[in-house]
Amino acid sequence: MAEQAQHNVADLMTMYTATFLELPLAGTKWAWGVGKEQEATEAAWKSYDAWVRLASASTDGLYRNSLFGDIVARTLDMGLRWQRLGNAWAGAFFGGLWPVVGLPTAAAVQALQEGVQSLSTRLAAQDAQLQALHREVRPLTAGVPSQRKRRASRTRPGTPLQALPAKLNGHQPNTFSTPAA
């Protein structure tokens, strides 16, 4: 603790001398054309660095203060209680209102989101397996002539089948590569 106090005093002195002696002197010399801008800049940074160390030491001292800790803990506790009260109040008054106007509740939307996420993950995995199977089957069937007549497409003519999107709801495909430079 005593060592920290010594550091603080040293930083305070550094900040004081750099701000009120070195910086004005270097600034004046620079203005009169007998000094360089660099001297003034160095004095300013010296003062700033000492200020940062002092400010950090002050916040550390605050965190070590038992009273401050008690106040933070109590404020947090009380804030959370008020928030829960607000949530409970809003739930009680408006909870029954959403279904009436045809809007889903937050819980219903969240459950739906999780369902979609789970489905898209499974879909991506199935898609990867399917692609791998395609790659295996293609060379085997390359030389085999078709035995059956091609069936008429069940889709309407002129309507191309839509490929499943590779990305769903923010999910990424299974293999990742570095972006092109």
Binding site: T59, D60, G61, Y63, R64, G69, D70, V72, A73, L76, D77, L80, R81, Q83, R84, N87
Partner: peptide, 21 residues
């Protein structure tokens, strides 16, 4: 680490409040 001293002040009820909220 000075901030860790604050964690001592968090009572079990406060932690429950956070997760309950």
């Amino acid at each position: 680490v000075p901030l860790f001293g604050l964690l001592d002040k968090l009572r079990p009820e406060t932690l429950e409040q956070i997760t309950a909220t």
